Amino acid sequence: MVYMSLLLRSSAAMSVVLAFGVQASAADSVTFGTNWLAQPEHGGFYQSVADGTYAACGLDVTIAQGGPQVNNRALLLAGKIEFHMGGNMLEAFSAVEQEIPVKVVAASFQKEPQVIMTHPGQGLDTWEELKNAEQFILGDAGFQSYYQYMITEYGFDASKRVPYTFNPAPFIANPKSAQQGYITSEPFAVEREDGFVPNLFLVADHGFDTYSTTIEVMQATIDNKPEAIKCFVEGSIKGWYTYLYGDNSAANALIQKDNPDMTDEQIAFSIDKLKQYGIVDSGDTETMGIGAMTDARMESFYANMVKAGVVKDGIDIKASYTLDYVNNGVGLDLKK
């Protein structure tokens, strides 16, 4: 399974000396490994580095970029970094199945930012019409996860899938095709390269209800350093509120320092889409705060994935996450 292989692909010493929830007298150095190059989808974390939110509760946080040649998940498993940016809950379920002691402690995204794009005015303008596309340009991970759900739940056709090579040219050339994309990425590229605004169907809005862009830690960190987790999770939550609704200029400067290819135009597009589609802040976050997770959502997603044949039945999914650090309304006062 692709997610198992991703799990395998993917410390600083720390002494927390005060009681839970109390600021440490000296900052503890920790590292957060992301899952790709610096971008607005990581904005809340950069925000809390830039404005001192992490430092205020006792952490000196280094953000280690992911990328094609970086294996931050492996560094987490080896104890070389304390925090890791996970993908969605399929990775966490797979970890439990493999008896790897990784747990999700917060969900930065309430919705998986995965979309299916189509050309407007081609009879592919609604979710139901989407099934009529001549081909679905999908990567292996998408075909083996959300597209299996679309097949089971909505009757999409597996035989129409063609591999995605991360080049939009085949999609642009065929107006009857559909292509996968991240809400913040591929649609931007299509608009710039071919001058049209594609139809966007967010798979999360049609029942693929996983959490995404999670914060993962090892069980040993939960056992030994809960204060550091509390600081990092709550600091990240506050960072996301400020990044989305406040002055995010310092965070964007750090993002562009780490990733000079990230343009102002791309940043503005990404933030707009994160807000427009409720990727970070929607549903439960409106009362529980950003980062929220619930047992009901976890159980719903797991049941859907078992039904679609994506994961096995019988996994103890409660071993894949903890609610101890979220759902407390942290940061709601920062939302403007």
Rank of each mutant, 00 (worst) to 15 (best):
G235F: 06
D209F: 01
G283D: 13
M4D: 13
M150D: 06
I137V: 12
F83V: 05
M117I: 07
A56C: 03
P113Q: 05
K335P: 08
S236C: 10
N199L: 03
V190R: 03
A56V: 00
M89T: 13
R297Q: 15
G246P: 06
A27P: 00
K275H: 09
T210V: 14
A50D: 12
V310Q: 04
P260C: 08
S177G: 13
A78F: 09
E41I: 13
S94R: 00
D223K: 00
G67N: 10
V326W: 01
V2P: 15
G291Q: 04
F208D: 00
M293N: 04
V306T: 05
T210F: 07
S212G: 07
T213M: 10
N35F: 10
M288A: 14
M288T: 02
L6E: 12
I116L: 15
A95T: 10
F109R: 12
S15F: 08
E265F: 02
Y325C: 01
E91R: 01
L334T: 08
A303L: 07
G207K: 05
L244T: 08
S212P: 06
D205R: 04
P113S: 07
E97N: 09
F232K: 02
G67I: 07
L8M: 15
V280Q: 06
M262C: 12
A204L: 04
D209A: 15
E299T: 12
N328I: 00
L75V: 11
A319D: 15
T118W: 04
P175H: 07
A251V: 11
S300E: 09
A55C: 08
E134N: 14
K312P: 00
D194G: 02
I279H: 05
A106N: 10
K160T: 04
V16Y: 02
F269T: 02
Y46Q: 07
L75I: 08
G235H: 04
E265A: 14
E134C: 11
W127R: 01
A296Q: 11
E112C: 13
I279T: 08
Q23H: 01
V233A: 03
G21A: 03
F269L: 09
Y147M: 14
F166L: 10
D316Q: 07
V197E: 13
V233L: 08
L59C: 03
E99M: 03
D205W: 02
V330T: 14
V162R: 08
Y46W: 15
Y277M: 12
V2F: 14
L244I: 09
Q65V: 10
T165F: 08
V330I: 13
P101C: 11
A92V: 06
I267K: 05
D28E: 12
K230E: 01
E41M: 14
G87I: 10
D223G: 02
G289M: 03
Y211S: 03
K312E: 01
R73W: 12
K225G: 01
A95P: 14
A50R: 02
I290Q: 05
D125V: 04
Y149C: 05
T214R: 04
D157N: 14
A50V: 13
L200Q: 15
G331I: 00
V203P: 03
N35Y: 07
P260H: 02
P198W: 05
G283Y: 09
Y154S: 07
N132S: 14
M305F: 00
F109G: 01
Q110K: 12
G123L: 04
K80V: 11
Y54C: 01
N224V: 00
L200C: 13
E134G: 14
L130C: 05
